[in-house]
Design a protein around this nucleic acid. Structure first.
Length: 188
DNA sequence: GAAAAGATTACCT
DNA sequence: GGTAATCTTTTCC
């Protein structure tokens, strides 16, 4: 069936929109990493938005060596290390980004992508991928959701693991999806 | 130069 | 549910 080929590759303009909207629209999108040893992809089920003037964002205090990718053009990948894993974001407008928190494995068998560190490990993303741009046939590509999720099937709640701006509801996930990393958060 | 702080995860009780 | 692992960047003195 033409299921995957019907998915539209996302172009940089997709990311040049308000970050909360990009975040929501990434639910159901497919992230693909093409490596010499094979292709791996996941379907996103959980993301978080990090905004300008957001004290929980790595970009809050301006560009540094670590976060410079967050100030790159729309569609830039920002990868950072936390403890012993890495996490990946897609940059929207300069200084804002969407953290990729969990996905559904699409080309099994591969590692469990539920959780931002596990998702990067499952896709084979490393710190060396920091600063890459999304491109339709490059190492990293993103394809649009086959169908936009219904509004009432999207959960929205507080972000996970942050110590500041803890009340902001900037985490988006597909309701009831078994691959969401921290399911059943209360939606108010 | 030293120390603290993580957008986490795995494993403990 | 709590905590140790583990290591780089950032921040502070």
């Amino acid at each position: 069936m033409a299921r995957s080929s019907s998915r539209r590759p996302l172009r940089p303009a997709f990311f040049d929109r308000p970050t909360t909207r990009v975040a929501r629209d990434l639910l159901g999108a497919v992230v693909t990493v093409r490596a010499p040893d094979g292709v791996r992809s996941v379907e996103l089920v959980e993301v978080e938005a990090y905004l300008a003037n957001d004290p929980a964002s790595h970009a809050y205090r301006g560009p540094t060596r670590r976060n410079r990718s967050m100030f790159g053009p729309p569609g830039t990948l920002y990868v950072f290390r936390i403890h012993q894993v890495v996490c990946a974001n897609l940059v929207t407008r300069a200084g804002e980004a969407v953290l990729l928190r969990a996905g559904r494995p699409r080309m099994p068998p591969h590692a469990n992508p539920s959780g931002p560190g596990r998702l990067c490990r499952a896709l084979g993303l490393t710190i060396a991928d920091d600063g890459q741009r999304v491109s339709p046939h490059g190492r990293l590509s993103v394809s649009a959701p086959r169908q936009r999720p219904r509004r009432n099937s999207v959960d929205r709640g507080p972000r996970v693991g942050v110590s500041r701006a803890v009340r902001r509801r900037l985490r988006y996930s597909l309701a009831g999806d078994p691959w969401v990393s921290r399911p059943r958060r209360r939606v108010t």
